[in-house]
Amino acid sequence: MRRKINTGLFVAAAALLLVMVWGNISGSMLEATSDSDPSKTISIHANFVNFENADQLDSFADLIVIGTAVQRFEERNPVSTHFDDGTLQDFYTLTDISIDKVLKGPEQILQEDAPLTIIEPLAYLDIENEKTKLTRENYIELYEGDKSVIFLKKNTFGQYAIINQNLGKFSLNETPEFQVTADNEEAAEYAILRKDVFEKYGLN
């Protein structure tokens, strides 16, 4: 069960997010498999801020868009950093998205010719000579061609990163694939929060 954050703790939560979400890797690893992906998947426990409704997501996000990933996950740009001894320090994937609409944030993003590059908290890496999908808290990537509402926060390097893990992106498809692939508890949370997001932005 995820740790819940009350609205009154937003300031502390924001600081915690900046320090911990993209910080050093820690905690235990859980190995899982995927029917659609032949590679091994390892999910790492991570501390992150959990938002419970659309208003909280809107308040914290710097940029909210309706956008679509333009590449298959295997074709995207994985990034990893390491300590001096070779130990993995951080990982993420740079994902290009085309933008249909800006719900919050600078409108000029729509006028740029190139797709917007955002950060997703997972990556394909070679670990012990084996192709491995490394992810935080079972995060599932944006699917190619799946138009979604995406909540983003700008980091200190000027890059936009998805917030709220799997509950920071909501497919406009009538039957989102995520609700099929996620575990039952998270799929139920996703459905409730997705309905709230759609109502807030008039997407029903």
Rank of each mutant, 00 (worst) to 15 (best):
I99H: 05
F151Q: 03
N6S: 14
V79T: 08
I118E: 02
N204G: 13
Q56G: 14
D100M: 13
Q108R: 12
E31P: 02
Q111R: 06
G67L: 02
A13V: 07
L152P: 02
T81Q: 12
E144P: 07
T87V: 06
H45C: 00
I97V: 15
K147I: 01
R76T: 15
Q108T: 09
F73S: 08
L122R: 04
L103S: 09
Y160P: 07
A114G: 04
E31A: 11
N173Q: 08
F151H: 01
D37L: 10
A54V: 03
P176I: 04
P38R: 03
A61I: 02
V70E: 09
I42E: 15
E130Q: 05
T87I: 03
N173H: 07
A15R: 12
K147L: 13
L17Q: 11
V102P: 05
G145I: 00
A187C: 05
G67S: 01
A161T: 03
T33F: 05
D55T: 12
E52L: 12
E112I: 03
L193Q: 15
I44Q: 08
T68G: 00
S43Q: 05
G8N: 13
S39W: 06
A187I: 02
R136I: 08
L134V: 15
S28F: 02
I99E: 04
R194A: 13
T68C: 09
N6D: 14
S36P: 04
K104R: 10
V149P: 04
I44N: 03
T135E: 04
L125A: 12
I66V: 03
L57S: 14
T41L: 14
S26P: 00
A191E: 12
L94C: 08
K4C: 03
K4V: 07
A114Y: 06
V19N: 11
I162V: 05
E112H: 09
D90C: 06
N155A: 09
F198M: 10
L103R: 04
M1E: 14
L193K: 15
T41G: 09
T132H: 08
E141N: 14
N77G: 05
P38S: 06
G23V: 10
L110Q: 06
D113P: 07
A13H: 07
F60L: 14
I66S: 00
S98H: 04
F83L: 13
E112S: 06
V180M: 01
L134Q: 13
L142V: 04
S36E: 13
A187Q: 06
S28Y: 01
I150R: 02
D62H: 10
A14T: 15
L94G: 05
V21D: 15
V149D: 05
R76G: 05
L152K: 08
S80Y: 02
E189T: 00
S98D: 08
I66F: 00
R3L: 13
T81H: 09
E189N: 09
E137G: 03
P106W: 11
E128A: 15
R76W: 06
E137D: 10
L63N: 11
V79P: 08
F10P: 00
I44T: 03
E177C: 00
A69P: 13
E144A: 06
T68A: 03
F48L: 12
T81P: 04
D100L: 12
E141I: 04
K147S: 09
F73K: 08
G105K: 06
L116W: 06
S148P: 01
